[in-house]
């Protein structure tokens, strides 16, 4: 980080900026989550399955975020790793009503956590147990158990149940993530 940026941050002239990666299986609700963070007038009423990826920008209380909304379809999942290098945080969205594919979600999470660009870093990961409004949905505790999060000890993580359509539970999650990113950015700035 340049001297100017450091100065700008401490004077509050420049907002902290960070990239986050939004991943999860197809149909989990990633694009719907991001759609909710957009200003009211820019939201789309009809979210369609993402092809490849989309980039969305939005601001939170403490940082400005550039979100990479990846497609969760199996044939696009190997695109995720191309963005591992440049991200400061991850949102992992799970459809908590789709019990059949919880194993697949866990598998993809494990593959990601084992990746050399992710494994050594203390990246904050926000898990969203989405679609909690559906009848078949299981609790965030069960989602956490199904994903084996108890074994994830080398990274800060947080799980919250949410409904991406109404936005319930999303703010709690994103506040946690932006706080983590802000702390990390500030710590980095002090080091310099």
């Amino acid at each position: 980080m340049g001297l100017f940026d450091k100065l700008a941050f401490s004077l509050g002239l420049k907002k902290r900026e960070a990239n986050i990666l939004v991943v999860g299986l197809d149909n989990a609700g990633k694009s719907t989550v991001l759609n909710h963070f957009k200003p009211e007038d820019q939201r789309t009423s009809d979210v369609v399955p993402t092809v490849g990826y989309n980039v969305e920008k939005f601001k939170t209380k403490s940082v400005g975020l550039t979100a990479f909304d990846m497609s969760g379809q199996a044939r696009y999942r190997n695109l995720w790793e191309a963005y591992y290098q440049d991200c400061q945080g991850i949102i992992f969205v799970v459809d908590s009503s789709e019990r059949l594919r919880l194993v697949v979600a866990k598998e993809e999470l494990d593959i990601m956590l084992e990746h050399p660009l992710i494994k050594p870093r203390r990246l904050p990961i926000l898990f969203l147990a989405n679609k909690m409004d559906l009848r078949d949905a299981i609790s965030s505790v069960k989602v956490s158990a199904a994903l084996g999060l108890d074994r994830l000890t080398d990274k800060p993580w947080h799980i919250t149940a949410c409904n991406a359509v109404t936005g319930d539970g999303l703010h709690e999650g994103i506040d946690w993530l932006s706080q983590m990113i802000k702390d990390a950015v500030d710590k980095n700035a002090q080091k310099l």
Partner: peptide
């Protein structure tokens, strides 16, 4: 469901096993 390569096995004893 939404998974292409699903393998459904039904056991002699009545069990249902689904592999992906």
């Amino acid at each position: 469901g939404r998974e292409d390569n699903t393998f459904i096995l039904v056991m002699k004893g009545g069990g249902l096993h689904i592999k992906i």
